[in-house]
């Protein structure tokens, strides 16, 4: 997995609440057996019209935001289906960080498995960063994972909370499965005890 340390990039404003994973990547693009190539269909139904032409008003179709690496959004981002195609599409587009007041649980976890940093900040701070993002491509935010800060284009610093284990894995690009397999002995002994306590499982 890619390591995440610091990121200086353009932030795209998306002031919508309850952005669901069906919006992020509609189901017709789930029929893939690969993880890559989904970026062109990110937000497909909001991004393209029925003939497949770009809808100029949609934020990622505006010249200022085509290279966005950060997304600023409303409450409960990523709700709905568990599809990991949502973070795959976000990553494939080039977005590495999301800033929102809150996230749906499964989506939040899925981000970390794919080198994406979802930052939760209080609504008032997200509102300020949303305004900052609206300034376009000249305004770049700085994300510092180690320091756990977001710095707006005019130098205002916001600190965010993060689970230390998730931070550690993201900063070092660690593979969860490899880490867990190091604990195989614990799993073995749990399994032995459980098969005696609950043999019907």
């Amino acid at each position: 997995m890619d390591k995440f340390n610091t990121l200086t990039g353009i932030a795209a404003p998306m002031p919508l609440i309850n952005v669901d994973t069906d919006m992020i990547i509609p189901k017709q693009f789930l029929k893939t057996i690969k993880r890559s190539g989904l970026g062109v269909n990110l937000f497909d139904e909001m991004r393209y019209d029925d003939d497949g032409k770009e809808i100029p008003d949609f934020v990622l179709n505006k010249d200022a935001y085509r290279e966005a690496e950060i997304l600023v959004a409303g409450d409960n981002f990523g709700c709905g289906s568990s599809r990991e195609h949502a973070p795959w599409a976000i990553k494939d587009f080039g977005i590495r960080c999301i800033i929102a007041p809150s996230y749906a649980d499964i989506f939040y976890n899925n981000c970390f498995k794919n080198g994406i940093l979802p930052i939760a900040l209080p609504q008032e701070q997200v509102d300020l960063l949303m305004k900052d993002a609206e300034k376009g491509s000249n305004a770049r935010m700085i994300i510092d994972l180690d320091a756990q800060t977001v710095t707006s284009s005019d130098g205002e610093v916001f600190s965010f909370d993060l689970d230390p284990f998730k931070k550690h894995c993201l900063m070092n690009g660690l593979d969860d499965i490899g880490l867990t397999m190091e604990k195989a002995a614990a799993i073995d002994s749990f399994e032995t005890a459980a098969s005696q306590a609950r043999p019907w499982v």
């Binding site: 568990s82 990991e84 794919n114 969860d176 867990t180 195989a184």
Partner: peptide
């Protein structure tokens, strides 16, 4: 009982566990 992402599917297949809080 709860839903998981594909990376976690792989994690469960390989280890029969999930990393959880």
């Amino acid at each position: 009982a709860h839903g998981i992402g594909t990376s976690e599917v792989e994690h469960v297949l390989a280890t029969q566990t999930l990393i959880q809080k």
